[in-house]
């Protein structure tokens, strides 16, 4: 465990925005080191200032390119920006290619921008387990805007709502018929919809499907009806720039609405609940699993299950009775 003055020094550096210290801490959080958690305990009271924007949508929808463009637009307004970009870990080798950064490299030398790639490392829900704490780190560094880009998602990866104040769902034309638009899951979590690559066929159809879906919604919390913003070809800079102005205005409007209607409280409560949940799982379940594995009992239990001598529920009840008093 690092000594007291070293920890204080680390905290000071992070609050001053030191990238090397912050990046190292995020690495230690990803690697699940206990001392990284103690640092989070210390920075936690200073968190809660940044506007956290989640960006999600299917693979190849253009999320990273959009994040890159948004970085520029926030920098023009002299806001400092942090980006956490998540890409999937291979379930077979544990390796990962983190490629979101390619789209954002032109900002690499801007001291007001800090881009960090994270691999999912087995986490479900489209994010990495470390993402919540990494947001805290960037927040304490003083980043005013933090964008969290999920992996390319399917229908169900909605974890991003637990981490963001504003969720942008990025869609592209031609991904399915109008039944897709009324399904549960990712289509429900948007504060802002983006129809990306809107110069392609099917963009108008997607727009009317989304509007039809939104028209059916019984109510919108705080009266915020998610706007649908069409964004065209990134290489057609005139119209692209205009639609980006529209998007960044919508992000600002949404943030103001959250403040005015005191909706931020709900989102923060959701995040708090999720953080407690995860911390409890780490504190209670992880040691049990570790002991079962180390004592060799996990192998015995698995054998019983495979031979049909028991079932998962009975086994779980036995383990719970033994460990949880």
């Amino acid at each position: 465990m690092a000594d007291e003055s070293e920890e204080t020094d680390k905290l000071r550096k992070i609050r001053e925005g030191d990238v090397r210290t912050a990046s190292r801490l995020i690495r230690n959080l990803e690697d699940d080191l206990p001392e990284a958690k103690s640092t989070i305990k210390r920075i936690f009271p200073h968190t809660g200032r940044a506007h956290v924007i989640g960006i999600t949508g299917p693979p190849g929808a253009g999320k990273s390119t959009l994040v890159d463009a948004l970085i520029s637009s926030f920098r023009k307004k002299e806001k400092t920006v942090g980006v956490l970009a998540v890409d999937p870990t291979s379930p077979f080798t544990g390796g990962a290619i983190l490629g979101d950064r390619i789209r954002m490299q032109r900002h690499a030398e801007d001291p007001g921008v800090f881009v960090r790639s994270l691999a999912t490392r087995g986490a479900l829900g489209g994010l990495s387990k470390a993402v919540g704490d990494a947001v805290h780190v960037m927040d304490v560094m003083g980043k005013e805007i933090i964008m969290v880009e999920t992996v390319g998602t399917g229908q169900q990866e909605v974890e991003i709502i637990n981490h963001s104040h504003t969720v942008i769902v990025v869609l592209v034309p031609g991904m399915g018929d109008d039944i897709q638009a009324i399904k549960a899951g990712i289509m429900e979590i948007a504060d802002i919809f983006v129809i990306n690559k809107a110069d392609r066929d099917g963009a108008n159809q997607l727009l009317s499907e989304l509007n039809a879906m939104l028209n059916m919604a019984p109510e919108f919390p705080g009266g915020w009806r998610p706007p649908v913003i069409r964004i065209g070809n990134v290489f057609d800079s005139g119209p692209f720039g205009e639609s980006l102005v529209e998007l960044s205005a919508a992000i600002g409007d949404h943030h103001r609405r959250l403040m005015e209607k005191d909706l931020l409280g709900d989102r923060m409560r959701r995040k708090a609940l999720m953080e407690i949940n995860e911390a409890l799982r780490d504190a209670i379940l992880a040691p049990i699993l570790k002991e079962l594995a180390e004592s060799g009992e996990m192998d015995r239990i698995t054998g019983r299950l495979l031979r049909k001598e028991s079932d998962p529920y009975t086994i779980a009840e036995e383990v719970a009775r033994r460990f949880l008093k």
Partner: peptide, 27 residues
């Protein structure tokens, strides 16, 4: 990736300044 490492690829046409900054940001 197949060897189990996490790989950040920055793409072509990078200045040494961009590469060094990215390496530090990515730790």
């Amino acid at each position: 990736r197949d060897a189990g490492f996490e790989v950040i690829y920055t793409g072509c046409h990078q200045s040494p300044e961009q590469i060094a900054a990215a390496a530090i940001q990515e730790d």
